[in-house]
């Protein structure tokens, strides 16, 4: 199988704006899927609402394009019914961390053996560029003309409330590190979350002073530094991986009474 067999290239060009970072994630995901032997018979994609949610439509897999914010309950249920499947959630920061934030808290707690790829562009892109849960404080958006008021959500902290989870912070500029993180996350026995900084030039970047998508990519190159080996907590603008203690037998709890597998 070739990587392009993972994609519905007949539907290209995608709806994503020129310069969008989502395609860079899809390309690495398709590559990892090819390497790990993920195919339409053993893998299901669950995507949320937002630009990132369209990814399911462009890949040669069964995919569930859920309601806004509801990827995790759907993905967890699929994994419970079909534990043999790889269940991958692909969505954006607004979908996962804001409207879906409660599900994120509780899915993490239950440690289902699913993988979440978060296209973190720090903005609500599809709706035109409103402040999101990850928007840095002070950022000018179309819903925060005087700058975003609050500090962004701490996704690393949320994910690491589960001591058995996998959390990686990477960027679309760091393609090798991103690919490694996606691969490790899929192989991780339990909940895994890859937080990928990704540019939205059209509905965020230009407003905050970037001339092009390339300028945004270059800013990831200069601003993000790899955390030293053994790091247990990533600082802002550090890339790296925080691995919890993997459970010997991963799986979704079958019973709410605590009788996990």
């Amino acid at each position: 199988m070739a990587v392009k067999d993972k994609l519905k290239t007949d539907l290209f060009p995608t709806i994503w704006c020129p310069g969008c970072g989502i395609g860079l994630i899809m390309a690495q995901l398709a590559t990892v899927m090819d390497e790990l032997g993920l195919d339409k018979n053993n893998t299901v994609l669950v995507t949320g609402i937002g630009c990132t949610g369209r990814m399911g439509a462009y890949m040669n897999f069964e995919s569930v394009y859920t309601l806004h914010g509801r990827t995790l309950p759907v993905a967890e249920a699929i994994k419970m019914v079909r534990p043999e499947l790889h269940v991958l959630v692909v969505s954006g920061d607004g979908d996962l961390a804001s409207i879906g934030g409660n599900h994120l808290l509780h899915s993490i707690r239950r440690n289902p053996n699913i993988t979440v790829l978060c296209n973190n562009n720090e903005i609500y892109g599809l709706t035109g560029g409103q402040t999101g849960p990850t928007t840095p404080q002070g950022t000018n958006t179309i819903s925060s003309p005087a700058g975003a008021t609050y500090t962004p959500i701490n996704l690393q902290g949320v994910v690491n409330t589960n001591p058995n989870a996998y959390y990686a912070k990477t960027t679309v500029y760091h393609q090798g590190a991103m690919k490694k993180a996606i691969r490790e996350a899929i192989e991780w026995p339990g909940f895994s979350f890859v937080d990928i900084a990704s540019q939205c030039i059209e509905n965020n970047g230009r407003r905050i002073g970037f001339a092009s998508a390339n300028d945004m990519l270059q800013s990831y190159r200069t601003e993000y530094k790899a955390a030293p080996p053994g790091t247990t907590h990533l600082e802002p603008h550090q890339t790296g991986i925080i691995k919890g203690q993997p459970l010997p037998v991963a799986g979704t709890a079958r019973s709410g009474n605590g009788s996990g597998e």
Binding site: T66, P73, A77, I78
Partner: peptide, 17 residues
Amino acid sequence: FLQEEDEIASANAILGA
């Protein structure tokens, strides 16, 4: 069986299941 965090999760879970 899964006791969910809320009814939104419950309804979406049975769709996925």
